[in-house]
Amino acid sequence: MVNWFWKRKRPLTRTLRVRSRGDYGDVRRVDFAELAPEIDTYLGQAAYLQLGFFETLSDLIAPTPELSQKESLSLAAGAALLKHRALVDVIRERGDDPLDVMLPFREPLDTFRRATHGARPLETMLSVQITAGMLDDFYLALSASYGATGKQVAEILQADDDRDALVSILKDAIDSDPEWSSLLALWGRRLVGDTLLIARAALGSQALDEEEEARVDPVFTDLLGAHSRRMAQLGLDA
């Protein structure tokens, strides 16, 4: 499991709200006060994550033999790129340089992407389905902390991600060879820890005290619940 050690400044007062997204989770409001990150940190991470999802999906196109699957991967990659560009536009609208805002997160998020890159294309497809799903949900939850800018980000993150076809590809592989079921289930469980570390690192405090943990737990419980439903959709145990 990868450990992430980069520091975040704490704003004075912010509120974190968990919102429902599709069929995943119920609306939940949790007061995180100073735990939400600075807005530049939030935007920089969110934008660079989408760029990483685009790169990973694009890399999968060449080794995928079926033309229909190549098309599905290209659509999912294009959706991630559109989200990245939209988040970059939000950064520019605030008068900041997107490259400067994203650069502090390049190394840790690239390390995360390498750590969650599977040895086989199907594992990497599952990585995108799981990590992008969990982190989109998490950054969507954080969006309520940032006023009008947060509303812009929420609209971007809720746009169609075109990842449904990845589910179909993975299910077809599992149906054709049952050995994929246990292998992908194991891989999916490994992904959770690394992804939750990324989310926790974004909260501005590496070590949470007992009171902070109590406020964080419901959010991560929702994220884990959504993860379990995504895995169940594939016929896999979370």
Results as ranks from 00 to 15, higher is better:
residue 85 R to W: 00
residue 85 R to N: 15
residue 87 L to I: 15
residue 88 V to A: 07
residue 90 V to W: 08
residue 94 R to C: 14
residue 96 D to W: 09
residue 98 P to T: 11
residue 98 P to C: 10
residue 98 P to G: 13
residue 99 L to E: 15
residue 101 V to Q: 13
residue 102 M to F: 05
residue 102 M to P: 08
residue 103 L to G: 02
residue 104 P to C: 09
residue 105 F to L: 06
residue 105 F to W: 07
residue 106 R to I: 09
residue 107 E to H: 10
residue 108 P to G: 08
residue 110 D to S: 12
residue 111 T to E: 11
residue 112 F to S: 01
residue 113 R to S: 09
residue 114 R to D: 08
residue 114 R to W: 01
residue 115 A to P: 00
residue 117 H to V: 05
residue 118 G to M: 05
residue 118 G to H: 09
residue 121 P to Y: 11
residue 121 P to V: 09
residue 122 L to T: 08
residue 122 L to V: 11
residue 123 E to K: 12
residue 123 E to T: 06
residue 124 T to E: 04
residue 125 M to K: 08
residue 126 L to S: 13
residue 127 S to Y: 04
residue 127 S to M: 05
residue 130 I to P: 03
residue 131 T to Y: 03
residue 131 T to I: 03
residue 132 A to S: 14
residue 132 A to N: 14
residue 132 A to E: 15
residue 132 A to F: 04
residue 133 G to A: 07
residue 133 G to H: 11
residue 133 G to L: 08
residue 134 M to E: 04
residue 135 L to S: 10
residue 138 F to N: 00
residue 138 F to A: 02
residue 138 F to P: 02
residue 139 Y to C: 00
residue 140 L to H: 08
residue 140 L to F: 06
residue 141 A to C: 03
residue 142 L to D: 06
residue 142 L to H: 07
residue 144 A to C: 02
residue 146 Y to W: 02
residue 146 Y to K: 11
residue 147 G to C: 10
residue 148 A to M: 02
residue 148 A to S: 07
residue 149 T to D: 13
residue 149 T to F: 01
residue 149 T to P: 03
residue 150 G to F: 03
residue 150 G to A: 05
residue 151 K to N: 02
residue 151 K to I: 01
residue 152 Q to F: 00
residue 154 A to M: 04
residue 154 A to R: 12
residue 155 E to V: 11
residue 156 I to Y: 02
residue 156 I to C: 08
residue 157 L to E: 04
residue 159 A to H: 07
residue 161 D to I: 00
residue 161 D to G: 09
